[in-house]
Design a protein around this nucleic acid. Structure first.
Lengths: 239, 239
DNA sequence: CAAAAAAGAGAGCAGCGCTCTTGCCCTGGA
DNA sequence: TCCAGGGCAAGAGCGCTGCTCTCTTTTTTG
């Protein structure tokens, strides 16, 4: 950082690191995480396999880097979708975000499997992944927050047995929202990825053929589930 | 099949096959599907690795056998839960089935990952798995069918763009149910496994702590989503 | 310019899925 | 009773994997 030569070395390191991740992502898209091979990455990059260990101490560390990148890629995609629908009503924004998440998943199936599929046994995602993983949740929360401050939210009452946990989640995630809403949001968040995962992992094969309208309807119902009400079928009723 | 001696041979084969699957399941529970190794299975069974290929032509075929067993295990579990709640109302039966599915998943996390987690790339589950995989869907459908013939179902209208696909799915899955119900059921089916998968795969870590009441509430809302109405909070209103 | 730090190269270890060949032994028919 | 045929285990071996260690080359630094 003090001298330019040190910067040159550091820059080279950054470039090689990026090249490794790029090639790894290519192999991920081609063969999946299970068949991601350090040797194959090195071969393709014209270096020897052991040299890779100068950049990533293990295969798992390379995977972790790819996981964070994937979360960030998804997060950025949905944030952009949210921003692009800023003028629309909350139901429309909710749908836009959900559909952006689905589109990202369909476009990056192996990266989706990496972050929302079965975890590799014996591999615990380090805490480093948490901020990137949270981005989509923050977007969904923001939509509900605006709706809460604006037209309001319609939520079913909580059963007594859930009261304590709902309050705890609310304090953690969105203290300015009603616990009923936070609970419904967390459930909808999981359910959204149930829908996406079933489509991506083949559970809908021979069951749902025309997935786009099906997903749109399911997401609209999800919006109702978190209490979003639809003024004039999602038309910009806010502005 | 004609002579008892031939039967002795066949019986031995069945026993060895079962022993291989048992040991494979043990390793599955210990290490996960990715690290399931034919050599380790053979080692544990006191045979040489190549001998396993007399019973399963490849690692994938062994996995397929485990997948079918897992689907059947889950299917049987939820069928029993359904039968045990036969006297209750449809909402209670729905919840019982969903909670049984969750309990099975928590008790067999690696087998769950095998059937509802990311698919192994290059491995397409053969058509043989379909009947076993369908069992839980059939149970859920049966609940809705009885409710449809009894107290009735409350379903939101379908958007025009979904009409054709909804009719197609209905003809395929449950021609005696309204297309609105079938569409909602398929979505709820996917969403149920979104909830279970998020809990199992660690997405709820540091988010939802007291999972049982949370899941119960989510499942109750899922029941509402498929149109099940709750006479006196799920009490046996069918009489 | 020499010392030190970083990176690459290559050999090697232990493990993997899978294939092929060899030979044992059980079984069913003559 | 004997014998051919076939099911089956064993072993060697191929090409691959992640990872470690040592040695050399390159680059940065005092």
């Amino acid at each position: 950082m003090s001298s330019p030569t040190h910067g040159a070395r550091a820059r080279a390191r950054i470039e090689v690191t990026a090249a490794i991740k790029d090639e790894a992502r290519r192999q991920l898209a081609a063969e999946g995480a299970a068949k991601l091979s350090l040797r194959a990455v090195a071969r393709e990059l014209g270096m020897v396999s052991s040299a890779l260990y100068r950049y990533f101490p293990s295969r798992d560390d390379l995977l972790t880097a790819l996981i964070i990148d994937a979360y960030d890629s998804l997060g950025e995609t949905v944030e952009q979708a949210h921003a692009a629908a800023a003028d629309a009503g909350p139901v429309r924004r909710w749908s836009a975000v959900c559909e952006a998440a689905r589109a990202w998943a369909l476009g990056h199936p192996h990266e989706y499997a990496l972050i929302y599929g079965s975890p590799v046994p014996g591999y615990a995602a380090p805490q480093t992944t948490v901020p990137a993983a949270s981005r989509i949740g923050l977007v969904l929360t923001a939509i509900l927050r605006e709706a809460h401050q604006g037209p309001g939210l319609v939520t079913p009452p909580l059963p007594a047995e859930l009261r304590a946990e709902a309050d705890r989640m609310t304090a953690d995630l969105a203290p300015d929202l009603p616990p009923e809403t936070v609970t419904a949001l967390v459930a909808a968040w999981a359910q959204l990825f149930g829908l996406i995962g079933f489509e991506l992992f083949g559970q809908f094969n021979r069951v749902v053929e025309d997935r786009e309208p099906f997903f749109r309807q399911a997401v609209a119902q999800l919006a109702r589930g978190v209490g979003l009400v639809d003024p004039q079928h999602g038309d910009a009723g806010k502005g």
